[in-house]
Each structure stands twice: as structure tokens, then as C-alpha cells.
């Protein structure tokens, strides 16, 4: 047993450097910010607000790399029965008056004023200090009120027994779940699985980053280009913004 655990320090440093080098594609063009890599014992803070910018102009009809990556990361079945969990889905839009068609990924919008948090009786649905909206599955009683309240239909209820979960993303029968903005990866300084998949496939439609950091790529882009929030009239201030709709 000790053989399996005792990885030599050289291997660790080597692996780490290679990984780090791979992440920095070109100077300044990082797909996420390493500057906010958090220590494991550090609590998340409100100084950071995680968000994503989705450029629907780069979003191809029929492509669902982001959805597949999310399903792989969370060990979801990928099925689309009415009872299957879908943390992320591709939505095809067509303007009824002009005929213009586009598509975009839809997931939990991580609102600043989440209705799901307001209605949860136990407080299981909550907003972390850094803006990520999560379900504390330890205290979720499975009443599904948050699913009724979500304006984006982002949440799924687990209808049957689950096995073979990702250790970082526990999920089980009888509780509600939704996109976690890959909090388990974000806390370790990585980007979301969907953004990573979209970038490595070359589409670059999803950009993840810290909206509160004026030097981050995402903050600069939302300050320059016109972006919209879905159902903005509800005043929820989601952390996910879209370009091109």
C-alpha cells in the first residue's frame, strides 16, 4: 500500500511544472486567472466573484462539448429522459420574427440574488461568499421548492439511486443538484470543466474568471463588449453573461 502512496518528490515537481507550463498557452493569454489560486485552508471570500462569459457567436449549432465535459466531470448519465439530471444543456434559439438562429449553453446562472436561496426552507440552497450558488446536500430534504423557484430551470432532482460518483462531486437519490461552477476545481486554482473543454476544442465560447478583478480577461471583456444576462428584468444579477443574443 505504501508503494502506491509514496510518489517521489521529483515526480510531483515534474508533473506540476509540466501541468503549469501547459496551462499558460501564451504570455497573458491564460484562460483563467492563477493569481487567485486559493490555499486549501483559506476560506472563500467576497473579494472574488466567479462568473462566465459565453460568446454565442462562437457557439455552434449541434456542438455540445461543454455539456459532454460537464457530464463526464460530474459522472452524469448524459441521458435526456424527463427524469435525468442535466446540469448543463444546449439551447437552440430562433428569433420568431427575424428567423435568426443561435445556440447557447444554459446552466445555473449563479445569481447574486438567487430565488432558489430565498425559498429553501433549510438553507441548503445557498450562495457562497465568492458568488457560486450551491446545494448543501447534507441538509437538502428534497422538497424541490428551489426547482419551482428557479427562473432558469437549472436544477435537477435525483430520481433514483446513484453509484460511482466523482469523489469531488457527491450526488445521491432524493436531493436536488445543479451546476456547481466546478467549485472543487475552482478552489484548486483550475477552471471549469466546460470552459476547459470548449477551449481545448478550439471554440473559445466559454470564458471563466473573476468578475471582480479588473485585470481579468472576463472583466475586461464585459467592460468592453455588450453582454446580456438572461431574464435580466428579474433583477437577479446572474454571474453568467452572454454575448450575441
Amino acid at each position: 500500500m505504501s508503494d502506491e502512496i509514496n510518489v517521489s518528490r521529483r515526480q510531483i515537481v515534474g508533473f506540476g511544472s509540466a501541468a503549469l507550463a501547459g496551462l499558460a498557452l501564451a504570455p497573458g493569454v491564460l484562460l483563467y486567472d492563477l493569481a487567485h489560486g486559493k490555499q486549501p485552508d483559506e476560506a472563500v471570500s467576497g473579494k472574488v466573484r466567479w462568473g462566465m462569459l459565453i460568446d454565442t457567436n462562437n457557439c455552434k449549432d449541434g456542438c455540445n462539448d461543454c455539456v459532454k465535459a460537464c457530464n463526464t466531470e460530474a459522472h452524469l448519465s448524459g441521458g435526456t429522459k424527463e427524469t435525468d439530471s442535466q446540469w448543463m444543456r444546449k439551447v437552440e434559439l430562433k428569433d420568431m420574427r427575424t428567423g435568426r438562429a443561435t445556440s447557447l449553453p444554459m446552466m445555473c446562472q449563479h445569481c447574486a440574488e438567487p430565488p432558489c436561496v430565498d425559498v429553501c426552507p433549510t438553507g441548503a440552497s445557498f450562495k457562497r461568499a465568492d458568488g457560486i450558488v450551491l446545494v448543501d446536500k447534507h441538509i437538502c430534504i428534497g422538497c424541490r421548492y428551489c426547482m419551482m423557484a428557479c427562473p432558469y430551470k437549472a436544477r435537477s432532482f435525483v430520481h433514483e439511486v446513484v453509484t460511482d460518483q466523482n469523489s469531488d462531486l457527491p450526488r445521491g437519490k432524493g436531493v436536488v443538484e445543479s451546476c456547481t461552477m466546478c467549485a472543487h476545481r475552482v478552489d484548486r486554482g483550475q477552471t471549469t470543466a466546460c470552459a476547459e473543454a470548449c477551449a481545448s476544442a478550439g471554440h473559445n465560447a466559454i470564458l471563466f474568471g473573476d468578475l471582480n478583478d479588473p485585470n481579468s480577461e472576463i472583466a475586461k471583456r464585459v467592460a468592453t463588449y455588450a453582454t446580456t444576462q438572461v431574464r435580466a428584468d428579474l433583477g437577479l444579477n446572474p454571474g453568467i453573461r452572454y454575448q450575441g443574443i
Binding site: 502512496i5 510531483i12 508533473f15 492563477l34 489560486g37 486549501p40 484548486r188 486554482g189 483550475q190
Partner: peptide, 19 residues
Amino acid sequence: VVAAGNGAVVAADYSGVNK
């Protein structure tokens, strides 16, 4: 993998639990 704080990606250090 865990973040070492400076953004470097390293394998988890379980040396403390080895017999």
C-alpha cells in the same frame, strides 16, 4: 491534485499517513 497555493498543481501529499 491540490493547489499548492501559488497556483502550481501538485499531487496530494499523504506522507504523514504512511506507516
